[in-house]
């Protein structure tokens, strides 16, 4: 059974929709309350980044099943300005918006896997995964 959901991010209400969908799937997959909250918070951060920096984009939420491992993958992608300096963006306390500068590095710490791809002028794609223990 492949479970996949997609949310277009066009306004700040869509951030809430994305995290509701993520929380529901996390719950269905059997994640505990702490992991549900980690995943939901991570989705909130990534959705907000899309909305703040690119204006629009999409968040794809997927249930993963690899042999004995089960988990969840979230892909957040936009075609915005991209992240000029990924290393800088991944530093604690570095912020170009009104956040606390913990968005991306914080998201990475909440998840088991974190990949970021970006090209200046072409947008950004962040993929995160959490595995059921």
């Amino acid at each position: 059974m492949e479970k996949i959901e997609e949310v277009s991010i066009n306004n700040s209400e869509d951030i809430i929709l994305a995290r509701q969908i993520a929380r529901e799937m996390a719950k269905e997959l059997g994640f505990g309350l702490a992991d549900q909250t980690r995943i939901t918070t991570a989705v909130s951060e990534l959705s907000r980044n899309i909305y703040t920096f690119a204006g629009t984009g999409r968040v794809v939420v997927k249930a993963l099943s690899e042999s004995a491992k089960k988990g969840m993958e979230i892909i957040a992608e936009d075609r915005g300005p991209g992240i000029p300096d990924i290393e800088m963006a991944m530093q604690d306390g570095y912020s170009t918006n009104k956040g606390l500068g913990q968005g991306l590095p914080g998201t990475k710490r909440l998840m088991d896997e974190f990949e970021i791809k970006s090209e200046a002028g072409k947008g950004a794609t962040v993929t995160i995964r959490k595995w059921l223990r």
């Binding site: 702490a34 909250t37 604690d92």
Partner: peptide, 11 residues
């Protein structure tokens, strides 16, 4: 869960 998440994020 929120206390845990805030701490892990460094918030």
């Amino acid at each position: 869960e929120i206390a845990i998440t805030l701490q892990e994020m460094g918030l």
